[in-house]
Design a protein around this nucleic acid. Structure first.
Lengths: 239, 239
DNA sequence: ACTTTTATAGTCACACTGACTTTTAAGGGG
DNA sequence: CCCCTTAAAAGTCAGTGTGACTATAAAAGT
């Protein structure tokens, strides 16, 4: 029905929702906001909001993220946003038809965000303590978690969780935290270093003080974007 | 901006677009319709159309596919539709803001479709002769082709291109056609048969007549949905 | 001094892969 | 009817990546 009489098409509200993850204290955390308006006022939800008439979805996602969490422009501008999928169940919003385009993003551990816009508050929440969320955001969060877990296998995305310089132990913890499994240290090291362009050694003496064990060498993210061969998650070996 | 005054949100038109592929005569084909209305009247485009007020995107995709191409209900009901991504560039439609949710589907070779609804005509077109299409459909088609190519690597999706019973040679042609590379016959056979649940042998004597060479055994799609280990496409070996 | 923790190095058997050869069974042409 | 072509099916073999494991090194805590 691609007729174009402007009055002939059913109007929809279009929103964006963001599942923004970080690894903090060995646990996967997700960025949540407390809703300041009905419906679901006072409940926690993924950050997001309405598309403006001139915006593409990704622009709107960046804007809402900055508005609702006060993350700095430095953070949000360079941030890699990936479209997850679109949720269009007619009943997903109790008041009206809202079609929502969901995005996923990964950040290194950052200071606590602040609320703003329509968000009363914002905070990092451990992923397994996030439910129940408003609307169908539990479903979106589950899809996003599954997606980033899968992407770690065949992309270099894990470095997006790490600060500019990191140790292989920190990188390994990203995988262990997202997948919820324990990985063999020497084998992980071998695979990462065998993939050209995944990580590159950085000068600067080994490791900041305060940690235990032998000092580790520091690395930065390399230019590679994909992993050949992939780093597959083990099947059934819980941590 | 999650305010809920019904007059406070910008209204958008929401459409679905479908990239439906098949393998016919050793070439990848895509289902196209000729537009019967402006804009782009007379040009070829992916089938699709407006979401109705009560519909989820996937329902709308099924309905539009049936309306515009006359494919039988048997075909469209059981069809596996996969959401590709959502296109929301403000300029993607010359008349107004249209946000489109794109889907991908795979079919075995079928009779020629007919037009219907807003489609003047419908036909299977070789994928490399499809451009230029209306709107941003060249981009959607490219994304869809890339996606199905990637999915063949780690899912059992290839059997969706095949009839109920097929030979390993036919299955291999699916991979070769979508990827545009030549695969080693013995190695392909070994990998497919080594993956439990990918294909299952079927009784009925070998191969229908009319083909040359030694008769091949027939198989049907097995219960497996994913491929472990994956069947990776070779890097730089054009057919 | 000793234990704990983590990084780093190295070993080994096994599975999978790509490249290749050989054999079998059909059709087509002279 | 023989031979050639085509494609399926079966097998070989060397190289590579992997999981499981052991050993050594260098820090912090007790």
């Amino acid at each position: 029905m691609q007729g174009y009489d402007p009055s002939a098409f059913p109007p929809f509200a279009v929103t964006v929702d963001l599942a923004v993850f970080t690894v903090r204290a060995m646990r996967l955390h997700v960025l949540l906001v407390e809703r300041g308006q009905d419906p679901h006022r006072g409940r926690w939800a993924l950050p997001g909001g309405f598309l403006l008439p001139h915006e593409a979805a990704e622009q709107a996602a960046r804007r809402e993220l900055a508005e609702e969490t006060g993350l700095s422009c430095d953070t949000t501008e360079g941030l890699h946003l990936e479209q997850l999928r679109t949720y269009s169940d007619p009943d997903r919003d109790p008041r009206m038809r809202v079609v929502s385009v969901a995005f996923t993003a990964l950040l290194p551990d950052l200071p606590e965000p602040r609320g703003g816009g329509d968000a009363a508050r914002a905070r990092w929440t451990p992923r397994d303590e996030a439910s129940p969320l408003a609307f169908d955001h539990d479903r979106i969060l589950a899809d996003a978690h599954e997606r980033i877990g899968a992407k770690l296998e065949y992309t270099c995305l894990a470095t997006a969780f790490c600060p500019a310089a990191f140790t292989l132990g920190e990188l390994r913890q990203v995988y262990e935290t997202v997948w919820g499994v324990a990985l063999d240290r020497p084998n992980f090291r071998r695979k990462v270093l065998a993939t050209p362009g995944f990580v590159e050694p950085v000068a600067g003496g080994p490791r900041r003080t305060g940690a235990r064990g032998k000092p580790a060498a520091l690395y930065t993210a390399g230019p590679a974007r994909s992993l050949h061969p992939p780093l597959l998650r083990p099947e059934g070996r819980p941590r």
